[in-house]
């Protein structure tokens, strides 16, 4: 399998604070890859540098043959990356339908867009019922589905998801995870940042664990799920098993 997205030697700063220290990782075609880590580990910042919302001070980011460091955010989206931002970031005063069509903003094939919209409504039946509602009136779970459908409307090769389960009720969390898997089965590669390690590992193929801006652990998701060091990364240094 070829690597779709490759990050190498990334150093990122917020003002004087260094967030990433020589970060390197790969997202392979067709996989679900997740980046785990606790609060303030640098997860969301990783998403920002991939999408061009923040520029690293050193290192390279390649998506296929595109050097993302040289592209603006809209250009990166047009290169084939879809984004499901943290906290969804729907256009709250626009209708659900308008939000979905905004996802296809970079495309101009009208007939195909209409077909994709229909396909999204089949994939997310719940969204169909709310098609004419303002996005701001939806529940968190519904918003998450709209955000995923919106990203898919751009026909991306890779979707970047920032904390897709944050703030959702357990019922919706399971549903969202199933949908991520379903989308992946259709051939879309998924890169997700998650705080919720056990959930993410349950559906991912490969995972990286970030702590204080450094990758401290990586491997096949099924192996990592049993690794006690994951828990240490979240809850602190003492790793003695519970009684």
């Amino acid at each position: 399998m070829t690597a779709l997205l490759v990050l190498k030697g990334i150093d990122t700063f917020y003002g004087p604070v260094q967030v990433h220290f020589g970060l390197g990782m790969e997202v392979r075609q067709g996989q679900i890859v997740c980046l785990l880590g606790g609060n303030a580990s640098g997860k969301s910042t990783t998403m920002k540098i991939i999408l061009g919302l923040l520029r690293p001070r050193a290192g390279s980011i390649f998506f296929e043959a595109h050097d993302l460091a040289a592209l603006s955010t809209p250009q990166i989206i047009r290169a084939g990356i879809g984004s499901v931002p943290e906290a969804r970031r729907l256009f709250s005063a626009m209708t659900v339908r308008e939000n979905l069509l905004m996802g296809a903003f970079a495309r101009s094939d009208r007939a195909e867009i209409a077909r994709d919209l229909e396909r999204m409504l089949e994939l997310f039946p719940r969204v169909r019922q709310r098609l004419t509602s303002r996005a701001g009136t939806l529940s968190g779970g519904e918003q998450q589905m709209v955000a995923m459908a919106r990203a898919l409307m751009g026909r991306p090769k890779l979707i970047c998801m920032d904390e897709p389960t944050m703030g959702l009720s357990p019922l919706f969390v399971d549903r969202v995870l199933e949908l991520i898997q379903a989308v992946n089965k259709e051939g879309v590669t998924i890169f997700m940042v998650e705080q919720n390690a056990s959930l993410a590992l349950a559906i991912a193929h490969y995972a990286y664990v970030l702590q204080a801006g450094r990758i401290i652990l990586q491997g096949e998701a099924k192996d990592l799920a049993r690794d006690p060091r994951i828990r240490a990364a979240y809850l602190g240094g003492e790793t003695e098993p519970a009684a």
């Binding site: 999408l51 919302l53 603006s72 955010t73 809209p74 989206i77 047009r78 984004s83 931002p85 970031r89 729907l90 256009f91 709250s92 005063a93 626009m94 905004m102 996802g103 903003f105 970079a106 919106r150 751009g154």
Partner: peptide, 13 residues
């Protein structure tokens, strides 16, 4: 409504 999100949809702001 959301400048950053618009950029993430490919809008040239």
């Amino acid at each position: 409504q959301d400048r950053d999100a618009a950029r993430q949809m490919g809008v040239n702001t």
